[in-house]
């Protein structure tokens, strides 16, 4: 399991439940590596500022993470982590590799509103 304080998505069922129960969701699918850790840290901080968004992580190497790895939006990705933003269960944005807190905030504000 990833060593973060975020909600962990461990299976396809949990992934479906998360999307069914929350309008706005951000999932960071990665490992405990240098490009992923800064993203988790930003998400942990942003969790306190955006009560309208559910922040979660998923282990990139778990078999069920194919639900993210195999998304058409992630087809060309070649850098960890894969970060996916969902609104009402639909992918509204996906990014590959490290993103700064400012870049994440910009996406959250644009896709989910403040």
């Amino acid at each position: 399991m990833l060593q973060t304080n975020l909600t962990h998505v461990a299976s396809l069922t949990e992934h479906t439940e998360l999307l069914n129960n929350n309008e706005n969701v951000m999932i960071c699918c990665g490992r405990m590596g240098p490009m992923c850790i800064p993203v988790y840290e930003s998400m942990e901080e942003l969790e306190n500022e955006y009560s309208n968004i559910k922040f979660a992580d998923m282990e990139f190497d778990s078999p069920d993470a194919k639900v993210i790895r195999e998304l058409p939006e992630c087809r060309n990705f070649a850098g960890l982590p894969f970060v996916v933003y969902y609104k009402n269960g639909k992918v509204v944005k996906a990014t590959s590799s490290i993103q700064s807190r400012d870049q994440i905030t910009e996406i959250l504000d644009e896709k989910f509103g403040k």
């Binding site: 490992r31 590596g33 240098p34 490009m35 992923c36 060309n76 990705f77 070649a78 850098g79 960890l80 990014t95 590959s96 590799s97 490290i98």
Partner: peptide, 17 residues
Amino acid sequence: FKGLGISYCATCDGDFF
């Protein structure tokens, strides 16, 4: 192309190649 072919971390992204 960062994350779409360009990487600064071999240990992180080597297995995509």
